[in-house]
Design a binder for these strands. Structure first.
Lengths: 129, 129
DNA sequence: GTCCCTGCAAATCCTTTGCACTCCT
DNA sequence: AGGAGTGCAAAGGATTTGCAGGGAC
């Protein structure tokens, strides 16, 4: 286990991620932090986001298109992804513990996280068509 | 809506995907088809896999690391992903219709598919450590 | 003949990495 | 001092795309 040292950048990245509910990409976070700290680099943002994920302080979401997104909300919850506009939102839906237990009992291994994505067309995009 | 024309390559790709239960990457499929048809190109494989996904005849799975994987099994089911060895397996677990209905009622839009991933360490990798 | 599809290679997108330097501790 | 973290730019992996030729209809 390697020892962590404080870093201003990591602190910013963490705060930025925790302060938003919109599942930003690494680039979103980079651009946002750049406003106050024009010297931060995208590589640092990626490095620290991955570190946070490794430490279990954030999650990475992948949908099969576009860049990955990050989520600082660790409470178990589900996501809705709009195929039209790419928006990602949380579903106010209690995740089923039962599901985790069932999965646990039939996968034979150890489960340490669970992500569920619903894909479709969001309210706004439905209206547009 | 554009008209589809028959293509031997697409046929092969589809057959190859449907014939396996192992969630291959585009490259796996490419290599497999190459054995009988050494002239097929990786671009064609990607093009057709994406087309199949668009037509609803296959699904794309993304895990946040490594290349995307494809699944020709359209019946709703869940996946278990091993973080150690990267293996992906289906969980013999009845997906909950209820979940879809709940999600449908709270996302405000239209849901047309649903993917659930359980991440952890598989049986084999647990043994190794 | 028309237009879709292919192979090929180059381009693109996203992400990671090597290196010299800086900042914690 | 030591070593973890940074910025920068180049590399890397995965996927897409432009184009000229080939095949389906």
């Amino acid at each position: 286990m390697k020892t962590l040292k404080y870093s201003r950048q990591r602190e910013c990245i963490k705060n930025c991620l925790m302060g938003r509910r919109d599942h930003p990409t690494a680039d979103h976070i980079y651009l946002s932090i750049r406003e106050n700290d024009p010297n931060i680099s995208l590589g640092t943002v990626y490095r620290n986001l991955n570190l946070l994920v490794e430490l279990g302080e954030a999650r990475k979401l992948s949908f099969g298109y576009g860049p990955d997104r990050f989520d600082g909300d660790l409470t178990p919850h589900y996501h809705f992804v709009c195929r039209e506009c790419g928006s990602v939102s949380d579903l106010p839906l209690k995740p089923s513990d039962q599901l985790n237990h069932l999965a646990q009992s039939c996968c034979g291994g150890r489960i340490d996280s669970h992500l569920t994505y619903f894909y479709g067309v969001c309210q706004d995009c439905l209206k547009k068509v």
